Computed example of a mutant assay.
Amino acid sequence: MEVLFSKYENDVEEHSNVSDALDGDDLCQREELEDEFCSYVGASYAVATSHGTSALHLAMLALDLKRGDKVVCSVNSHPNVPEVVRHFDAEPIFIDIEENYYNIDLNKLEEYLQENKSKKLKAVIVTHVAGITVDLERLYNMGKLYNVKIVEDACDALGATYNGQKIGSTGADITCFNFSSHLRENICNGGMLVTDDDEIIERARLLNNHAIVRDEDALEYIYDVVDIGNDYSMSQLDAAFIRAMVKKQDKVMQRQKEIAQIYSKELVGVDHITLPDLESVETPYSLYIIKIDKNRDSFARELKDKGVHTGLHFIPLHLISYYKTKYSLKVNAFPVALRSYQQVLSLPIYASMSDEEIKYVIDTIKEVASTRV
């Protein structure tokens, strides 16, 4: 048997929406998605983009990031986070993580903000690993206290909550979603930028399409360009598919919760494995991350040889050649992230997994673990 790490979902509604788009239906799928997404997460405004990375890049444009500016982020993030910063010739500042859920360490973040007060420090991008958040109330207070914008990277946090309120409506200046996030490839690509800020959304909408403006009374081919933007727009086909995807996200999360509970029950006590504590946090169960006490890569390789595919969230950025070289980063500079990286492994978890596939993953993990000394 082969169990993929991720598998995209599709059903009648996806096919119906895509057919409408292909048939030239007058309905603008992208505008419908933006409206429905605002309703789902509770945000005031949304801009659909071609990818999650586009949403992050557009966020930096909306914040008017410039050369020499600084943006703080977790060292345990996907490379697209510092990448969008570097495209402005700005500088990403990396912060180590906390041990339990692999998110940015707020104590270390606050220490940095206290010691580095500068007009060049523009924003903090916080990645919600596995859709589990840090103490957002404390984070937002830091943003106000140190006059930095808070951008949430919610690539695995669609439907996630903080104090019962959906991510995207909890108080960040900007939240960016990714509908085809790291190692969880979808049949389509898409991202979403959401905000409650009137000025941010006005700038984001302008720059989302080359900063083109038109006079409503002029011919449709007459336009002007008032700034430097880009083309981040989501296609109608992608929007059609993602509309259906968002509508069933709550059901998806419920099935993922069931799978996580089975993993937690059946894998408890297995030698060489540490399970995540998901009882004390709000989580969409988008990832199920275990720890392997030693030789994680050989463990993963044996699982793959037996048909079980796994993931890794993430390779710490200070181990990535570009950032390691560019900023002369030392291997031991971020000890918690380094230690976690050597052990973490993400198991398959998605709504269409069958009970048979779940059992096979569990049995295979137990089999591989039993051969370890």
Rank of each mutant, 00 (worst) to 15 (best):
M234Y: 08
Q342H: 12
E266M: 09
P348N: 07
G229Y: 02
K70F: 10
Y101L: 10
Y350I: 09
G24D: 09
N189E: 12
I201D: 01
D215I: 13
P92K: 01
I104T: 07
E111G: 10
A62W: 00
R301H: 14
G311V: 04
L139K: 00
R30E: 09
V134M: 02
E356W: 01
E111P: 05
A218Q: 13
K291N: 15
V84Q: 03
L319N: 01
L22C: 11
N76V: 06
V252H: 07
I262M: 11
D135Y: 05
A204G: 06
L338K: 09
K366P: 01
A90S: 12
S264I: 11
L22E: 10
R203K: 15
K248M: 12
V336M: 10
V225L: 09
G24W: 07
V81L: 07
V336S: 08
E13A: 12
M234H: 11
V72M: 07
D69K: 04
F5S: 06
R255D: 05
N116T: 07
L319Q: 03
L329T: 04
C155W: 02
G171L: 08
E36T: 12
G42S: 06
L207Q: 03
L278H: 06
P284K: 02
Y162C: 02
M353A: 06
D238T: 11
A351T: 08
N186M: 13
V281F: 12
E14T: 12
I97Q: 01
F94D: 00
E31Q: 13
H15A: 14
Y45F: 14
P316V: 01
S280F: 12
S321Q: 14
Y140S: 03
V71K: 00
V72A: 00
M353Y: 04
Y288N: 04
I358F: 04
A337R: 00
T195S: 09
N178I: 04
D231M: 10
I292S: 00
D355C: 04
A157T: 05
T49I: 10
K119F: 14
N332D: 15
N17W: 06
D135W: 06
R372D: 04
I259Y: 01
E279N: 15
D305G: 12
E91T: 14
L319R: 03
L207I: 08
T127N: 08
F88E: 08
E9W: 14
I132C: 02
K149P: 00
A154L: 02
S352V: 11
R184E: 12
I95M: 05
L345A: 06
Q342K: 14
K359G: 11
A333H: 13
G171C: 07
P276V: 05
L329R: 02
M253C: 09
K117P: 10
R205P: 11
L121N: 02
R339N: 15
V344M: 08
D26Y: 15
M60P: 06
Y322C: 13
K306A: 09
P316G: 02
G68N: 10
G24I: 07
N208D: 14
K7R: 15
V134E: 00
D277R: 11
N332L: 10
I362V: 13
Y140H: 09
L312T: 07
E32P: 05
C38E: 01
R243G: 05
R255S: 08
C176S: 10
E36S: 13
F37C: 07
N147T: 11
C188F: 14
F314N: 03
I315P: 02
E152C: 08
